[in-house]
Write a protein that binds this DNA or RNA. Structure first.
Length: 250
DNA sequence: AAGGGTGGCAACCGCCTGAGT
DNA sequence: AACTCAGGCGGTTGCCACCCT
């Protein structure tokens, strides 16, 4: 693209497609100062971009080890399983797919997988369709993740779920999750999945999905290649707040 | 060849949460 | 306790390339 689309907000901040020069400046800045402190990044990098734009560009495009191109079969399979378990928790799903970003997974789901699973209307008709449904805040149940403090995260990811935690609230949170997993059948077998799916409102849809994907939940299954290889390819994946999703998936 | 429709993807928007003051 | 701010997330939009008629 010779002249990327570019415009400027009322605050004078550039928006739109990033140029190669901007990518270079951002990459250099992150290499020098590291990730984080995004409010300082535009000034440090000499970019006329907002902090969020810088963060997004880094996370979705410039970060090392990001995989581009088509999703492998095992990745698709894992997305389907995790989506059944977690819903639209793209960041969590992406966290189990080395090299894939939440945006990638979300886009792939919206453009490839969603249409496979449903007879969704064409995108040009989706707005009408959604308006007709009159979806309101009241009708949507939106489970949100618990965020652990950084120290609790370290403990959870490095050891096990019932290790010592920074403070009682963190410990309580983790133990609550452990209880739920235990109640779901000790973290193994199909019961775990049932516990999760019971959170979803429409059981009929789940049944329909099961018909469409008969092998999704019940067949003998081993971790896909993309997960087995994650250690060797150097991908720094995040296991924080890990509740052993893999066991729940089996 | 032209024009409309569609798919894919990058980027933006608005909201939520936790930390700091 | 109330407020502000940064980080993070999911939903949505806009652009472009390709396809079809």
């Amino acid at each position: 693209m010779d002249a990327p689309l570019m415009y400027t907000s009322s605050l004078g901040v550039r928006k739109g497609t990033w140029t190669e020069e901007e990518d270079f400046l951002l990459r250099k800045c992150i290499q020098k100062y590291g990730e984080g402190k995004w409010h300082l990044v535009p000034a440090r990098a000499g970019l006329n971009r907002c902090r969020k734009s810088c963060r997004l560009r880094w996370l979705n495009y410039l970060r090392p080890h990001i995989k581009r191109g088509d999703f492998a079969e095992d990745e698709i399979d894992l997305i389907l399983r995790l989506h059944k378990l977690l819903g639209n928790r793209w960041s969590l799903i992406a966290g189990r797919l080395p090299g894939r970003t939440a945006n990638d997974v979300k886009n792939y789901w919206n453009t490839h997988l969603q249409r496979k699973l449903t007879t969704a209307p064409q995108r040009s008709q989706e707005r009408k369709y959604n308006n007709a449904l009159k979806i309101t805040k009241d009708t949507i149940i939106r489970p949100r993740p618990r965020t652990f403090s950084s120290i609790a995260k370290t403990n959870v990811s490095n050891k096990s779920m019932n290790t010592v935690h920074k403070d009682e609230s963190d410990k309580e949170t983790v133990l609550n999750i452990c209880d739920k997993i235990a109640a779901a059948g000790g973290g193994g077998g199909g019961e775990g999945v049932q516990w999760w799916t019971s959170l979803l409102e429409n059981g009929n849809e789940i049944e329909e999905e099961n018909k469409l994907l008969p092998n999704l939940l019940h067949e003998e299954y081993s971790p896909p290649l993309c997960m087995q290889q994650r250690q060797s390819d150097g991908w720094d994946f995040d296991l924080s707040a890990d509740i052993d999703l893999w066991n729940l998936l089996n």
